[in-house]
């Protein structure tokens, strides 16, 4: 059974809740990053919520996804716990990766989430591999790679799609075309009119959908999933969307004007889905306010959980390298235990 599906009223409300959760999570992530409480980089998904949620609504809970550097939305859409996510962003031991991954590397393999990824285009080969495991063991799953418009120019993405299509693997490639690869417009990076046109090179279906319409995204992914499970191989879906924030927080965004951003915001995916549910009599303004308040509470709780969680102990830096640990690394952990203080990698 899917986590939620747009075929039922409850499922549609759940999809709306998840879109709101993503927006609230990333709004807070941006704020705490600006405050300096969240270290490193954060890449926010605000504006693109319909893509992640529409996609994951069409997947089964044990399907796999690979994500991107802009991965918070995919995690929430896939059903990851916002407390453990926020704790990870804060670098806390209670986070999904015990504080070793941070924003760009959140993963929960048991939940089918094979990792956000700091390397553009690195996810599709991994998804092809997950699809290979599924196919090899004859399991009833699919593997879906989220990738950005920029990643379509990467060589390893071509290799991954070619292999998945040649081997007829149960894979889906979901291109989030948010119009800019970092600071450079999509038309300056690709020669095709639509990125989904590249699917022709692999003789697989390539479709472009409105990524601001959660229903359109879900329908395309449902179709792709069905096709993959029927043994007909992968599909490439291009979802046209827009990020409201910069490539990263702190990006000056001198490559686009405010008018363009405003035009996309007029087509806001959450607003339009909300209106649709109200029109259908499935939601009232009061119920929406209530939902929004619940989501704000959830994220406030997540922030509180993250803030109150412990930082990792220094010796935890020496854990998790290998399934079978090596003395080269272990010596530093044991030295910390006996001597205390920072060893900083001096070899004796």
């Amino acid at each position: 059974m899917a986590n939620y599906t747009l075929d039922t009223e409850d499922g549609r409300l759940e999809a709306l809740r998840r879109m709101l959760t993503i927006r609230e999570f990333d709004t807070k992530a941006g704020e705490y990053f600006a405050d300096g409480e969240i270290p490193g980089f954060v890449h926010l998904y605000i504006g693109e919520e319909a893509v992640g949620v529409g996609t994951c609504a069409a997947l089964e809970p044990d399907d796999y996804i690979t994500s991107t550097h802009r991965g918070h939305g995919h995690c929430i859409a896939k059903g990851l716990d916002t407390k453990l996510m926020m704790a990870e962003l804060f670098g806390k031991r209670s986070g999904y990766c015990n504080g070793k991954g941070g924003s760009m590397h959140i993963a929960d393999v048991d939940a089918g989430m094979l990792g956000a990824n700091g390397i553009v285009g690195a996810g599709p080969p991994l998804a092809t591999g997950a699809a290979l495991s599924i196919d090899y063991q004859d399991r009833d799953q699919v593997a879906l790679a989220f990738l950005g418009d920029g990643a379509v120019a990467q060589g390893q993405v071509h290799e991954a799609v070619n292999m998945a299509s040649t081997w007829n693997l149960p894979a889906v490639f979901l291109v989030e075309n948010n119009k800019y690869g970092e600071a450079t417009p999509v038309e300056k990076q690709h020669n095709v009119k639509q990125l989904s046109d590249t699917a022709q090179a692999y003789d697989i279906p390539g479709v472009t959908v409105d990524g601001m319409d959660v229903t359109a995204v879900t329908e395309a992914v449902e179709e792709a999933r069905k096709r993959a499970r029927a043994g007909d191989g992968p599909t490439m879906i291009e979802a046209e969307t827009y990020r409201y924030n910069g490539h990263y927080e702190g990006d000056e965004q001198n490559y686009r004007d405010e008018e363009e951003v405003a035009q996309w915001k007029e087509r806001d995916a959450i607003e339009s889905f909300k209106e649709r549910l109200i029109d259908r009599g499935e939601l009232t303004e009061a119920e929406f306010e209530e939902l929004q308040a619940e989501v704000e509470d959830e994220i406030a709780d997540a922030v509180e959980y993250a803030q109150n969680s412990d930082l990792p102990e220094p010796e935890e830096a020496y854990e998790d390298m290998f399934s079978e640990p090596v003395p080269e690394v272990e010596q530093f952990a044991s030295r910390l235990r006996t001597d205390g203080g920072s060893s900083g990698g001096d070899s004796r």
């Binding site: 796999y64 690979t66 393999v109 094979l114 690195a122 599709p124 080969p125 991994l126 998804a127 092809t128 591999g129 997950a130 290979l132 495991s133 599924i134 090899y136 063991q137 593997a143 060589g155 390893q156 071509h158 290799e159 991954a160 070619n162 292999m163 040649t166």
Partner: peptide
């Protein structure tokens, strides 16, 4: 052919696929 599998000449692709496969229950 399933267990002794020829790949395209695509080293990044199949090394990546092997990594993804290894993370999801098989041992390439």
């Amino acid at each position: 052919e399933e267990r002794v599998r020829d790949t395209p000449i695509a080293e990044a692709g199949y090394v990546g696929a092997a990594t993804g496969a290894a993370a999801t229950g098989t041992r390439p």
